[in-house]
């Protein structure tokens, strides 16, 4: 088990190294950094001096090592646009994105798993078919259409929920949270729903097909024959077995939600990392873009590491393949 974690860690570090290399090349070779930084009237000599001072004349590997060292110490450099340190900008925006992603994941699991179980157990009923058709819509309609649709109904027609921004937040240290005020929670509803509906539909369909698969197995048949009560058969025996692939997918989903909250954040003007990224693209703010790349990759790697470890907790067969059979 310990060895497995070490191996996974080594793999994660390798992935981060490759991503850093891409981010570095983006930063160093897409456009000339100096030309981006200075105005048109800066003299050539001044530009050269700046280039020398920033170390842009050093050999490329030296620059890359310096880039890695800076990343390691959390120094992401400065934004071309706002002249602020990028690390601070992201720290400022990260709580918004993480809270939004967390709530939409919660929505997708809290509704997707029970709905998946229901449709598997009540196969062929009208209610199950209706739910399946609804999720088909959830999967096929693009996120921004759902967002605009929700804004139209709840914001414009019913005027019950705010349609943009984070509303009121309370700061705990540097972390500004939505969870502690009514306004903040109300502001979360629409964007979280928008972001969660697609995941919900996916989770439900996955849980349903896994459940159906497991319900056909011999050990479920044997559990029925032993007269165990149906609640235990369905929710203890069957559900636990159908959760394995669901965990994998949910892990990937969470990464996806964080990374692709860009669209939702822009529809709802949600001040998260995604919106920051969009603004940076408009201004060709390359340091921010490459930092975003590194941060998102880091989150993905961490989530996958956690998912791998969860397997150990759930499935006793993993990690004991060499156990002697008697």
């Amino acid at each position: 088990m310990f060895r497995f974690i070490l191996i996974r860690l080594a793999q994660s570090i390798f992935v981060m190294f490759v991503v850093s290399l891409i981010a570095f090349s983006l930063f160093r070779f897409v456009g000339d950094p100096v030309a981006q930084m200075v105005g048109q009237e800066t003299s050539i000599q001044d530009q050269e001096r700046l280039r020398e001072r920033l170390g842009l004349n050093d050999p490329v590997p030296v620059q890359f090592v310096r880039f890695l060292r800076d990343l390691g110490t959390g120094n992401f450099g400065f934004s071309y646009r706002t002249r602020q340190p990028i690390g601070e900008m992201f720290l400022d925006r990260m709580p918004a994105t993480l809270e939004l992603s967390f709530v939409s994941l919660l929505i997708s699991l809290a509704f997707g798993i029970p709905a998946g179980i229901y449709t598997a157990l009540k196969r062929g009923r009208f209610s199950s078919s209706a739910m399946l058709i609804l999720t088909l819509i959830g999967v096929s309609v693009p996120t921004f259409v759902i967002g605009i649709f929700l804004i139209y109904i709840f914001g414009v027609q019913l005027t019950v929920l705010p349609t943009f921004g984070r509303g009121e937040t309370i700061a705990i240290g540097w972390w500004k949270t939505n969870f502690l005020t009514v306004e903040g929670l109300r502001a979360l509803v629409l964007p979280a729903l928008t972001l969660g509906i697609y995941q919900l539909a996916l989770t439900m369909r996955l849980v349903r097909s896994e459940m159906l698969e497991v319900l056909r197995t011999d050990y479920i048949k044997f559990a029925v024959a032993r007269g165990l009560n149906y609640r235990s058969i369905y929710f203890h025996h069957a559900l636990k077995n159908s959760m394995m692939p669901v965990i994998t997918i949910v892990g990937l989903q969470l990464g996806g939600i964080i990374a692709f909250s860009i669209v939702t954040e822009s529809v709802f003007q949600w001040p998260g990392m995604g919106l920051l990224f969009l603004e940076s693209i408009q201004f060709v703010d390359i340091p921010v873009m490459s930092s975003y790349l590194v941060i998102i990759a880091f989150l993905f790697v961490i989530i996958n590491l956690i998912v791998d470890l969860l397997y150990f907790v759930i499935d006793p067969r993993i990690g004991s393949a060499t156990d002697s059979q008697i």
Partner: peptide, 16 residues
């Protein structure tokens, strides 16, 4: 009434 199934590899829940 109880039952014994054919294949012992598949008649026990692997996670319990």
């Amino acid at each position: 009434i109880s039952m014994i199934l054919q294949d012992p590899q598949t008649s026990l829940n692997p996670l319990l």
